[in-house]
Design a protein around this nucleic acid. Structure first.
Length: 306
RNA sequence: GGGGAGAUACCAAAGUGGCCAACUGGGGCAGACUGUAAAUCUGCUGUCGAAUGACUUCGUAGGUUCGAAUCCUGCUCUCCCCA
């Protein structure tokens, strides 16, 4: 590899675009290792529903090392802050070993957090503040949060719990300049895999059908039996949410399948919106047509990488 | 064969003479997003448009009326009940 000016490669794209297989092939060519950027594949035991295709990581009989998959128990609530921290740890160790990191995943925010270097400081619990806010209504909390920063959406004031945490963080920022936790500036080559809308939807529908036939419902059942609560599963969204409702008898199989299909289509659309947003903010994504076979895609990427 | 109900925009479904380009929901599209992000939230959704603008719509063909998705008549189709 000559004259490489990128610190890492990122492979992204909406769900069902064939990221993993491609990333693995690319990694095998470059002697690289994969760092997942998938907010759900971090959980152990959530395999079919999150599309952990373990066999995709085996290229020509060789196991491609991958990271940040299966690192948390189901039921746990992993988040961006932890992702950024965990990513950095892996990233640094790869750099130390002079191994090229290939990030692969479709969680736009996770990718953005490492590319744009979100400033996420470790904010400890502030019990005094929490006691003070305990009795406040959501409206009051919203007003308080608004006094710290302008609210550009309702994400932070969705529930009282989130609002209190958001205030806690803002309060902490107020007294801690935040320079103690610089995220390094990383220069990535960002590759996106793109199918036209119709094809994307077809692929999603087809994949859903095959997952349902290959034990996805059993997987959810097993999670429930293993002590993961229904609430946790609903929180995980998509297949875990819809199948959980089905197992609880709240929806018929048909309703589950149809609702889930729609939900995944919408999810893919939101992913695309996120990617467009990143581009608008100045991050260049090199889109490759999904139809192109993986070997050819690898060639394309190598061109960028020279 | 007889009787009844109904046909509204991509789908479902309100509207029963002017306030209707037409409530609402779904779907679709677009956007937002810095500690839940597979989440959460917002906007648009007849056509053309920058538009407070123009044009074309409520099965179909006519009619009544200043004015019809709404009233009348014929036709077509769908559903239900009785034979």
């Amino acid at each position: 590899m000559t004259g490489k000016s990128y610190d890492m490669i990122i492979i992204t794209g909406p769900t069902a675009s064939g990221k993993t297989g491609f990333a693995a092939l690319l990694a095998s060519r470059l002697g690289a290792e994969i760092i997942s950027a998938d907010s759900r594949q971090v959980y152990r035991g959530m395999d079919i529903g999150t599309g952990k295709d373990y066999e995709d990581y085996i290229v020509n009989g060789r196991q491609i090392p991958y990271h940040l998959v299966d690192i948390a128990d189901p039921g746990y609530r992993y988040n961006v802050f932890e992702y950024q921290r965990d990513f950095l740890e892996v990233y640094n160790s790869l750099k130390q070993r002079e191994v090229l990191p290939v990030v692969c995943g479709g969680s736009g925010m996770y990718i953005d957090s490492i590319v744009s270097g979100y400033k996420l400081i470790k904010v400890p619990l502030n019990h005094e503040l929490r006691n003070r806010l305990e009795e406040k209504s959501l409206d009051e909390l919203t007003a308080i949060l608004a006094s710290y920063k302008s609210l550009h959406n309702k994400t932070d004031v969705d529930t009282r719990k989130r609002a209190i945490r958001a205030i806690e963080i803002e309060e902490y920022y107020l007294h801690n300049s935040g320079t103690d936790h610089e995220f390094p500036s990383i220069k990535p080559l960002v590759i996106g895999i793109m199918f036209d809308r119709e094809t994307r939807r077809e692929r999603i529908s087809k994949r859903l059908k095959s997952r349902l036939q290959s034990g996805m419902i059993e997987e959810v059942k097993k999670l429930l039996e293993g002590g993961v609560t229904a609430d946790d599963l609903v929180y995980y969204g998509l297949e875990y949410k819809y199948i959980c409702y089905y197992l609880q008898g709240r929806t018929s199989y048909d309703e589950m399948q149809r609702g889930l299909e729609t939900a995944i289509h919408r999810f893919a659309k939101r992913q695309m919106t996120w990617f467009r947003g990143m581009e608008r903010r100045g991050i260049t994504i090199h889109w490759l047509p999904g139809e192109m076979d993986n070997a050819e895609k690898v060639q394309e990427v190598l061109l960028y990488f020279r």
